[in-house]
């Protein structure tokens, strides 16, 4: 392993760590046994969203600690929890209009387009873009633009108008998925067939087959070609 040590500062405290590590690995290397600020370690859960700065530069930078390599003179902090507002609603009682989203999250109307949210997104999502789409009533577009959101909440923590946009985006996606997306007829049809017992006998037969019979059937399977 590369043992080229660099200086970093964790909550102000000086540490030396190998420069080959991610921020998360560097915290652990320094001796932190983490329960907060760590999750999937693969860039999908948003638990390790991190704000940092490099000495001598006033700019704040944003990253996922598990996906970002340390650099010299980093000033690191953990964000253990962010108390984002999340009103209670029942999806089953909603129809799928943008007005409903705005009724649940009225603060969305306070957006004045500063774009700080987009700049703070570690996923490089056009956050302002989906908020604008939502404000124009385009739920499908808001769902599409926000799809790769891992809900870390950095955009909310930085928003001067205090918009809880990652939760509003999730509501847009759930409304799109359940109400607005075209439905597949083949799925409904298959469920009806299963309920009518169409496959029961065949499955029963398979369940009672011995290993040899199953092996023969398996070897003789016809494989659907690629498109």
């Amino acid at each position: 392993m590369n043992e080229n040590l660099i200086d970093i500062y964790i909550m102000g405290e000086h540490h030396q760590v190998p420069d080959s590590l991610t921020i998360l690995q560097a915290l652990e290397y320094a001796g932190y046994r983490l329960t907060r600020g760590v999750g999937c370690r693969g860039g999908f859960c948003g638990a390790c969203a991190t704000v940092y700065r490099v000495n001598g530069d006033y700019h704040l930078k944003f990253a996922l600690a598990c996906q970002t390599r340390v650099e010299p003179n980093m000033q690191l902090a953990m964000i253990p929890f962010f108390p984002a507002h999340r009103p209670r609603y029942r999806l089953s009682e909603l129809k799928g209009t943008a007005q409903e989203v705005l009724d649940i999250y009225p603060e969305l109307l306070r957006c004045y387009g500063c774009n700080t949210c987009t700049k703070s997104c570690p996923q490089d999502i056009d956050v302002l873009g989906y908020v604008s789409a939502l404000l124009r009533g385009e739920i499908a577009l808001a769902a599409d633009i926000s799809f790769d959101c891992i809900m870390c909440g950095l955009c909310v923590s930085r928003c001067p108008a205090e918009l809880v946009k990652h939760h509003a985006a999730l509501l847009c996606r759930r409304l799109y998925g359940s109400r607005l997306a075209p439905r597949s007829t083949h799925l409904a049809q298959r469920i009806a067939e299963i309920r009518s017992g169409k496959f029961k006998a065949e499955l029963e037969q398979l369940k009672n087959m011995d290993r040899k019979q199953l092996q023969e059937l398996y070897a003789a399977r016809e494989v659907e070609p690629e498109e």
């Binding site: 999806l91 769902a143 996606r173 759930r174 409304l175 998925g177 359940s178 997306a181 469920i191």
Partner: peptide
């Protein structure tokens, strides 16, 4: 179908 009804986008 259950997931879709909860809002999962396939």
């Amino acid at each position: 179908q259950w997931l879709e009804n909860l809002g999962v986008i396939f």
